[in-house]
Nucleic acid binder design. Structure first.
Ligand code: FES
Ligand code: FES
Lengths: 136, 136
DNA sequence: AATAATGTAACATATAAAGTTACATAAGTA
DNA sequence: TACTTATGTAACTTTATATGTTACATTATT
């Protein structure tokens, strides 16, 4: 299966919304992401459910922010997308009670949890306006 | 797509090999993983390519370790499997030259790289015999 | 020669993300 | 009111990838 790229795409969209005076349509945003308007609606809809963006239907409608980018963190956006698994590996457990298997999985998940915690902590420190500042 | 579970499975297998006097066959190992012998051969073959296990064909053949579990780290095994991506999200780049997109992706990959580095560092600290010690 | 193992290619299945189509609904505009 | 331009959403298709399966060649022991 392909890896989830919604976070990267949604941030791109939010940045454009932050730079735009007027609402932007799903079609406009889809063109920027090289995809389909429905994909934009589906994904951005999750952010609307959490209150980060709003939509207006009909002529001159589209998507806009409900607050400045400085008031959104990467963590909030990630959570709005469903807090999807950040780790690319999985841990199988075919024999629930075996010692060996349990030890292996405990060690792995412990490392993975530490890494996830780190990522989420970093995400929490990064506001979206900061995200867009130039770096080197 | 399903997430890669080979690391977890291979560690389970290595633990059994470490506890066994004689070589173990792909069929035996497959039964432990609730899968097919060919899957075992395919995955374990990568570890053989890197020299951590060896195989003997014919009667009484099978898989065995080339060195004690205390001489293998989680990191080495992970690398032998192809150093597959540890992060579950991907970063898309449809417009290679746009500033916004580049900033977003730079920020994301920087956090992901930090997390990957952390995981790899931890992996490097954990030898397989340690992995199998009881914890609470 | 028979048996029991691995090696490997080719193909099938399962799963999830992303893409597409179709149509309903809402809001502005002529 | 009719037209146009938006979103909302369900249903379906495509694509990507891990895993599973089948078939058969090869190797080593008995
Ligand atoms: S089958 Fe139980 S620990 Fe491996
Ligand atoms: S930065 Fe969005 S299309 Fe270029």
């Amino acid at each position: 299966m392909r890896k989830d790229s919604r976070l990267s795409r949604v941030l791109h969209v939010l940045a454009h919304l932050g730079a735009s005076e007027n609402p932007m349509t799903s079609s406009q945003l889809a063109r920027m992401l090289c995809t389909n308007p429905v994909v934009v609606r589906r994904t951005m809809g999750l952010l609307r459910d959490s209150g980060y963006v709003q939509t207006v239907q009909g002529r001159h409608g589209g998507w806009s922010l409900t607050r400045p980018l400085s008031d959104m963190t990467l963590l909030e956006i990630h959570k709005a997308l469903g807090d999807t698994g950040l780790i690319g590996l999985s841990v199988t457990s075919e024999h629930g009670n075996c010692f060996i298997e349990k030890s292996v999985n405990l060690a792995l998940t412990s490392v993975f949890n530490e890494a996830e915690t780190l990522i989420l902590a970093r995400f929490g420190e990064i506001s979206l306006d900061k995200l867009l500042q130039r770096r080197d």
